[in-house]
Simulated assay, not measured.
Amino acid sequence: MAKEMNKEAIIYPYQETDVIKRIICYPRCDIYEFEYRLKQLKRLGIDFIISYGPTQIGKIFVLGKGCTSIVVKALRHEMVVALKIRRTDANRKDLVREAEILKIVNRYGVGPRLIDYTPDILVMEYIEGVEFGEWIERVQDDQAIKNVLKKLLEKLFVLDSIGICHLELSNPRKHIVIVEEKPVILDFETVSTKTTKTNITQVLNYLIFRKNKISDKVTRILGLRNIGLLKTLLRKYKKERTSEIFLEVIKTLNLS
């Protein structure tokens, strides 16, 4: 079940400093770090932080809170954006690598668009969609699900082709959202360019081979009859990652 969002309240970052400090310096920091991050907000052109989302930190609701960062809604030059802010207790020194990965995948139409960044803050296109797992459970139109799955697999193949593996896609419920029947892959903070894992095998394992309500529904919609052939193709794909094998996978999934 989706979490209920709060009503929006706009807070100006330079006036409500006690409130804003809880967000841009979560979970704690000294005055020097706070002033440094305020300068980053100013450099990025952030005018307002918008209190909106399912998770509350102090007086502000946020879009998400993870182990290394929090994500908040904001206003930049009259445009709504998403800010990813590094936690002060994160196990990485900055967000620069994630920004560089986003710049690469954006060239191929993957991920939220990166607008600007500093060491501690990413400014990204604001995406409001339905979490992948919830969307599959909710939608009753079989053809719509097939269309989205094909679009998603094509994006995953692009990532595999350029050698970027999103390591969180073994459980993609919250790392993929659906916006008007278009899949958007989020959270490129944990990626690898050296792993033997692939994006396609991770997601198909979740969709088909992990026995649950979602896999039962997807298997029925796709009309899968030869699971053994699919497993063989995926083992081959994991080694070679060619377009020919990818097309065979699509054909076996009855998505061609």
Rank of each mutant, 00 (worst) to 15 (best):
G129Q: 02
K93W: 05
E16H: 14
E189A: 09
D89W: 00
K3F: 15
I227Y: 14
E168A: 03
V81K: 04
P27C: 03
D160I: 05
E4M: 12
K194A: 14
R86S: 09
E168T: 11
N226R: 10
N254I: 02
Y52E: 12
V158M: 09
R22F: 06
V123H: 04
I136K: 00
V130Y: 10
V179C: 13
L233N: 02
K238A: 14
Q143R: 07
G111T: 06
L167E: 07
F132V: 04
G66S: 07
K251F: 07
H166N: 09
E131W: 12
H175T: 06
S243T: 11
I185N: 01
K213Q: 11
R220Y: 13
G133N: 02
K42W: 11
Y14T: 13
R173L: 09
K3C: 11
D216S: 09
Y126A: 03
L224V: 06
P183T: 01
Y26L: 03
N6T: 15
P119A: 02
R113V: 10
E154Q: 08
F157Q: 08
R210T: 14
Y52S: 08
E35G: 01
H77N: 15
D141C: 08
F132S: 05
V203P: 08
I85R: 04
V123Y: 08
G109N: 01
F48C: 15
Y52Q: 02
S69F: 00
T242M: 03
V19R: 10
K236E: 09
S170P: 02
E244G: 13
I101M: 03
E98R: 00
K42A: 15
V139T: 15
I127Q: 00
N205Q: 06
E98K: 00
C165T: 13
I23N: 07
L224M: 06
C29P: 03
V105A: 00
K7Q: 12
Q40F: 01
P54E: 05
M5F: 11
N226K: 04
R86T: 05
E16M: 06
I127P: 02
R210E: 08
I10F: 11
Y117L: 02
K182W: 15
I85T: 03
A9Y: 15
S192A: 06
K39S: 09
E134Y: 12
E8C: 07
L156H: 04
K238C: 13
V72D: 11
R43N: 14
R22S: 14
G133C: 01
V158F: 04
H166L: 06
